[in-house]
Every structure is written in structure tokens, then in C-alpha cells.
């Protein structure tokens, strides 16, 4: 099929992009990597009246170290750039590992870090990753900006707090604390297939191996990435025993996720996967924590 007719804007600066978005209001739609949006338009599942293409806005393509040891990632940074960037692997080794699981090279060569977040696909890796890493998002509009925590950003499937005139401009990843460890676990029919359930676990331990912080984020098992509260309640302040981890896994799978039955698996099976993957993920993350 072919996309429905639309106006096409290709601003070359952030200011111009914001001005265009402001003037378009609800008619405007940001085009980032386009790996979800253009197919959706090809099938007329998306019919924006106007596209604001950010691919010519050079100032949105960057990965910068922050002085505290974190990173600032421009919204248009391609997935394949994030995947191969040495600074990213040094400061956040979990990031390239997770990004590699996104589709395949052609998609990652176009798809962008910020685009995936703004798109908010409940089965996508980067939104969950941003929650697990406590990312902060710089949201800009003409004449204003605000910071939103990743945890507060996702409202539902393909829904975020972004207003039509706003644009996600930058993703800031705060530094991994000393004593951190992370793990990514997913199950799909085949390696490159759609994840039936997936979990990103980030833990922090003190020098006595006590758990200082734990962020277990699940996706593909609910409408948004799900940050587990149970894991914190049970594990923080304690040395994580196998029993405690098993208890966390059990509780999360029972109480905190809301998987549906769809073509990729039943709800019952996905709950089971959550239990297994949380246990494996936490075990691996604590083993890696140092």
C-alpha cells in the first residue's frame, strides 16, 4: 500500500523543528528513524497530516559523556551507533547487549534511541532499558522544556506524556552506581523473534554484598514497561539469597505483570516465563555486581 497524503517538513535545526511542531499542533507527527512509523503509514495504520522529519537536524545526533560518569544521548542517535559506541559499552555494558536484540541491522541502522522511547511499543527494548537505567528525558517545545523521568513517561501502549507540540530531545543516563550489575533475559520462538517475555535487571550491592538497590523492569507482559516494587521491598537491605530471589520472581509473576494471550503465547505461559526470567536475571545481575 502507499501512505495517505501528508505534508512533509525537514527542519535542519531544533528551533525550526519545534516551531514547525508548534504550528502544526495535533496535525504534526515527528519522524525519527521511521522503522515503525513508515511501515504503519504504508499500511495506513498511521495517517499523520504532516511529518516533521528530524533526520536533517544534525544537533540531535550525539553521545556525550556527562561529568558524573553518565551519558547524554541525542534523540536521533541511531541504534547501531549506540550498539557500537565504545563509551556506551564502557559505562553501560548492558545497553549494547540489549540493543543487539532489536530486530536486525537494517532496522538498527535507521531506528533511533529516542524514537523508540517516544513510540512506546510495549514489546520494545529501549523503553524498558530507559526505565531500568533511571533515564531522564529532556522534552522540548517552542520556548520551553521540561525533564521527565523514564518511570513517569509511559502512559500505555504507544502512549506517552508527550504533547503534540513537544519533542523528546535528549536521553540522559545517570551513571551506574559502584557495585552495579545488570542482566537481560528474553524468550522468543527464535533468537530474532518477538519477545514473549523479557526482563532487564539492574542491581547495586554494597561491599558486604547487601542489596542497595534493585530495578527489575519487565516488558512484553503488560501495556508499558513494568518496574517491580516487590523486588525492592524484599531485596533492598538484604544479602540476596536464592530463596529471596525465588520469592521475588514468584511474586512478580503473580502480582505485578499483566500479560495478555496473543499469537505469541498465552498469559499463563508468559507468567511462567516471568518467574523463570526474573530469577535468572536477578541471579546473573547479582553475580555480576561489583
Amino acid at each position: 500500500m502507499k501512505p495517505a497524503p501528508f505534508e512533509y517538513y525537514a527542519p535542519t535545526s531544533v528551533e525550526e523543528a519545534l516551531a514547525t511542531l508548534q504550528s502544526l499542533g495535533y496535525d504534526g507527527k515527528v519522524l525519527a528513524g521511521g522503522q515503525s512509523l513508515i511501515p504503519a503509514m504504508n499500511f495506513r495504520m498511521a495517517r499523520p497530516a504532516a511529518l516533521v522529519d528530524l533526520n536533517k537536524v544534525k544537533e540531535l545526533f550525539y553521545i556525550k559523556p556527562t561529568s558524573d560518569g553518565g551519558l547524554a544521548i541525542g534523540t536521533m542517535t541511531r541504534d547501531s551507533v549506540v550498539e557500537k559506541d565504545p563509551l556506551v559499552s564502557e559505562r553501560f555494558p548492558i545497553v549494547p547487549y540489549v540493543v543487539k536484540h532489536i530486530a536486525h541491522p537494517q532496522i538498527r541502522n535507521r531506528g533511533t534511541f529516542g524514537g523508540a522511547i517516544a513510540h512506546a511499543d510495549p514489546a520494545a527494548q529501549i523503553p524498558a532499558l530507559s526505565v531500568a537505567l533511571q533515564a531522564r528525558f529532556l522534552v522540548r517545545k517552542q520556548g520551553g522544556e521540561r525533564w521527565v523521568n523514564a518511570e513517569d513517561f509511559f502512559m500505555g501502549p504507544f502512549m506517552t506524556v508527550l504533547e503534540p507540540e513537544e519533542m523528546l530531545a535528549e536521553v540522559v543516563l545517570p551513571p551506574m552506581a559502584k557495585g552495579s550489575g545488570a542482566s537481560y533475559q528474553q524468550v522468543s520462538r527464535q533468537k530474532g523473534g518477538y519477545a514473549q517475555a523479557a526482563v532487564i535487571s539492574v542491581v547495586v550491592v554494597d561491599e558486604n554484598k547487601r542489596c542497595k538497590d534493585v530495578r527489575v523492569v519487565l516488558f512484553s507482559v503488560g501495556e508499558t514497561p513494568i518496574l517491580s516494587q516487590t523486588a525492592r521491598k524484599i531485596l533492598v537491605g538484604n544479602v540476596p539469597t536464592a530463596e529471596a530471589i525465588a520469592e521475588v520472581a514468584e511474586k512478580i509473576s503473580k502480582d505485578e505483570v499483566d500479560p495478555g494471550t496473543d499469537i505469541h503465547g498465552t498469559a499463563e505461559y508468559r507468567r511462567h516465563l516471568v518467574k523463570v526470567l526474573v530469577r535468572r536475571g536477578l541471579t546473573e545481575a547479582f553475580e555480576r555486581a561489583k
Partner: peptide, 9 residues
């Protein structure tokens, strides 16, 4: 870089 020309305007 390889990209899919069906997903590019």
C-alpha cells in the same frame, strides 16, 4: 549503511 528502502521516504 544497509537500510530497507521500503521504510524510507
Amino acid at each position: 549503511k544497509p537500510v530497507n528502502s521500503c521504510s524510507l521516504l
